[in-house]
């Protein structure tokens, strides 16, 4: 992980900053019993911000950056959402992944991504033009989702990016529709051109 070593105090402060960035009361995010090494530095925050915007760019609705999706992804990775604290099977551990393993065998996904992007960029990923960043991410994405592809940490990271974006206020209620209290049920409705899905279709979110 890049950045200076963090003390416990720094870590707690970082947690509070992260919570503020997410618009949450700091007390609502219990990071204090996690390893300080799981707190991302400022560069990883900027990097994840850019990655989220490339995956879900601003169009006629806000994108990943405006919704602070990157901060959610880092919070989620620190806490191990989407199985990201599950120890890797030994067969899945490649030379590219090995340096980023925790003692328990789980992977520091953010560290891996940072190194993978810089390596693919032949330098600082953040200094590349937006189109080049998109091309790099497209290659990583295509490799991860190719039929028969070996394990890639990108699939979990991408999943968390989507979760972060579509559960944000803009992603959930501007890009998609959100209706907490429909008050009615109609089982057969025509789809009109341009209809957007409901982020509040909980069955679809759980099983779709």
């Amino acid at each position: 992980m890049s950045g200076p070593a963090l003390t416990r105090r720094d870590f707690a402060g970082g947690a509070a900053l992260l919570a503020l960035a997410l618009g949450l009361p700091a007390a609502g995010v219990a990071l204090t019993d996690l390893d300080a090494a799981d707190l991302s530095g400022e560069r990883q925050r900027r990097l994840m911000d850019v990655v989220c915007e490339r995956v879900i760019p601003r169009t006629d609705t806000p994108g990943g950056a405006a919704t602070h999706t990157g901060d959610f992804v880092l919070l989620a990775l620190a806490h191990g959402l989407a199985g990201t604290r599950t120890p890797l099977a030994s067969a899945a551990v490649t030379p590219a992944l090995a340096p980023h393993l925790r003692a328990d065998g789980s992977l520091r996904h953010a560290d891996w991504l940072e190194q993978a992007l810089d390596r693919a960029a032949g330098g600082d990923f953040l200094r590349r033009a937006a189109d080049e960043q998109t091309r790099i991410l497209t290659r990583i994405d295509a490799a991860a989702f190719a039929k028969g592809a070996p394990f890639s940490p990108w699939t979990a990271i991408k999943g968390l990016i989507l979760t972060g974006y579509y559960t944000s206020e803009a992603g959930g209620s501007v890009e998609l529709r959100y209706e907490l209290d429909p008050g009615h049920w109609n089982g057969n409705v025509p789809i009109a051109p341009g209809d957007r899905a409901f982020s509040s279709d909980w069955t679809a979110v759980d099983f779709g």
């Binding site: 490339r54 995956v55 879900i56 760019p57 169009t59 994108g63 998109t134 991410l137 497209t138 994405d141 295509a142 991860a144 989702f145 190719a146 699939t155 991408k158 999943g159 989507l162 579509y166 890009e175 998609l176 789809i191 209809d195 957007r196 899905a197 409901f198 982020s199 279709d201 069955t203 679809a204 979110v205 099983f207 779709g208």
Partner: peptide, 26 residues
Amino acid sequence: LQGTWTRGKRMAGIGAAFKDELHRIG
């Protein structure tokens, strides 16, 4: 049931076209 944005977790793709696809009812 119909799919929603979560199907994007199982699909290749990033960018505007990907986003456009995921706002559609699945």
